[in-house]
Structure formats: structure tokens, C-alpha cells
Amino acid sequence: MTVIFDLEAVGYDYLNSSPALRDITFSIAAGKSIAILGANGSGKSTLLKLLDGLYFPVTGEIRAFGVLLTEAQFRNEAWAFGFRRRVGLLFQNPDVQLFLPTVRDEVAFAPLQLGLSRGEVSVRVESALTTLGIARLADRAPYNLSEGEKKKVAIASVLSLDPDVWLLDEPLASLDPRTGAWMMDFLFSLVEQGKTLVIATHNLAIARNVAHQACVLDETHRLIAHGQADVLLDNKALLLQANLIYNNGDHVLARQVSRALQDT
């Protein structure tokens, strides 16, 4: 089994703020999908940026495809080129991913940057647009699309790159139920094609339907569990501890009692 990412005691903190990740150790195997679960602010997005070689660990180390990820390593243009071609990141906020004048330019950006032939670029762009069902938006300006449409354009802009490894930050956020279900199928089809998926989310349904494995970050930015997705998802105490579910039984009871009192 080939290992794609190997993290060893990784820690990261942003300048003048508290740590965003502490002591993270786990590895991600090729062809598997793994869900990174955690409450708001637990460090999921930061972890994906580390895996994509956009930030570098302050402590510990990350290896990708057996190579240590460092700034110096990315200065090797040929290597960086190969890495960018194999790994795609879907950002949590589609606004930051979309910066070109039209949807079509946006989707063509990655394959053009990575030096594909012009013919192949246009084939890929068209097929990404049709797969996502947004061909009719091709000549619109991304900034005035709806949130859900922006998300689809952002996904198309990764799809046109056709990476082996997909890093996805909250892929279901701001999608309506039908599109959400479609998205799950889409992620599932990527898994079936043998792609490696790393999905950061606090949506347990995605984790249950798509992920083979899961890791859970708690609010102190540490890894508190790592293993089979369905096993972890059945562990109620763990999910409560990570603030991924909350116990609302008490509130419901209190409301029923007060309503009963009013009725009498």
C-alpha cells in the first residue's frame, strides 16, 4: 500500500495567535478517502493547506510521495510542478478561489498553468463544465454568481486539473439538498476512479457515506482519534467530546415540560 501523506508530530501556529495545530501524527494511503472531522476553528483548513504545501509545519514534518515538504523543496520548479499537477485543493471560501474575469478562464487556469496543450485544455474545460452542469455559466463573471454556483465553479476548476489527490475543504457547504446529494455521488465516483480524497468537514453524513477513514481534531487542535470511519462515527462520546454533535435531549425535555404546564 503506497502512502501519499505521512505526518509526524506536525504543529503549526499563525503569527501572533495561539496554535492552530498541535502534534498531529497520521498517514494517508493512496486510493483511500479520509475525513478530517472537527468543530469550527479546530484547524481543518490549516491542515489542508499544510498538505497542499502552501504552509509548512512549524514543528514536526510532512512527507508527500515520500518527499519532505519544505519551502526549499518547492523552489525546485520541476518538482513543484509535478506536485501541483497531482494534488488539487478546493478552498472553503469559493470567493478566494475565483479571481479571473469569466468562469471559462477560471476553469482553464490550472491546466494552462501546468502546461497542457491548448487542445487538451479546451477539452478538459468543456468536460468539467458539463460534468458540473454549469456550461450555461461559462461566460459569466464568477463574482456575481450565487454561492452554490461559485462552489460548483470552484470544483470544476479543480476537476479540469484532474489531480490524483483531492483536498476538499467543506465541499458540501452552501449546496442545496439535491446538489448536496449529487456532490456526494460525485465524490464517491472519484473514490471509485481510485483517487485519494482528504475531506475536511463537520458534516457527519459525508464522512459516513464517502470516507473509508476518519480523523478527529478537538478544540485544542490535537488529533484525538484516527481509524475506520464507521467505527469512529458510532462512538458518541468521542463525537460529543469533539463538539461534532451536541446533546439537546435536555433542552427538548425542558420545552415539553413547560408546554405541558401551560396547557394545564
Binding site: 493547506k49 497542499d52 502552501l54 520548479e77 513543484a80 510542478f81 501541483r84 499537477r85 488539487g88 485543493l89 478552498f91 471560501n93 470567493d95 478566494v96 478561489q97 479571481f99 487556469f109 490550472a110 498553468q113 501546468l114 476548476s157 479543480v158 486539473l161
Partner: peptide, 15 residues
């Protein structure tokens, strides 16, 4: 946000 945009460009192969 512009810092994030820069990261998003780098991620897609901008050099």
C-alpha cells in the same frame, strides 16, 4: 482574502 487568493493561485500551479 488576497493572501488566501494568492494561496489558491499557487495551489493551482501559478508561478
Amino acid at each position: 482574502m488576497s493572501n488566501e487568493v494568492y494561496l489558491a493561485m499557487v495551489s493551482r500551479g501559478w508561478n
